[in-house]
């Protein structure tokens, strides 16, 4: 009985197409804006390299920063090959 109610409720929720529209728009605009201004990614990448270099030696040429989409989320995925971790890591 409870389960049935819950499912009915869920059904109602799913029918609100405005919520679906909002989420789909939010996700697509993350990509649109990133595509339109790739310089944002370039400067993010160089900022990341600068910060991480304080803690470890990294392979700058092998570094990549990308958006990765699944069905209902977008993640920023950075791949940064580490060459060596500094001994003073964390302190400076």
């Amino acid at each position: 009985m409870f389960e049935l109610l819950r499912r009915l409720f869920k059904k109602e929720e799913e029918m609100r197409s405005k919520d679906l529209a909002r989420e789909r728009l939010r996700l697509v605009l993350i990509h649109d804006r990133a595509d339109v201004s790739p310089q944002v990614f370039e400067s993010l990448k160089s900022d990341l390299i600068r910060v991480i270099s304080k803690y470890m030696d990294i392979d700058e040429a092998g570094t990549s920063v990308e958006l990765d989409s699944s069905k209902d989320s977008v993640a920023l995925v950075a791949s940064i090959p580490v060459i060596c971790v500094k001994r003073t890591a964390g302190q400076g």
């Binding site: 029918m15 609100r16 197409s17 405005k18 919520d19 529209a21 909002r22 728009l25 939010r26 605009l29």
Partner: peptide, 13 residues
């Protein structure tokens, strides 16, 4: 009916 994007959401987005 909840089948049209909210104005508030459009402005936020």
């Amino acid at each position: 009916r909840g089948d049209m994007l909210d104005i508030r959401d459009i402005l936020d987005i």
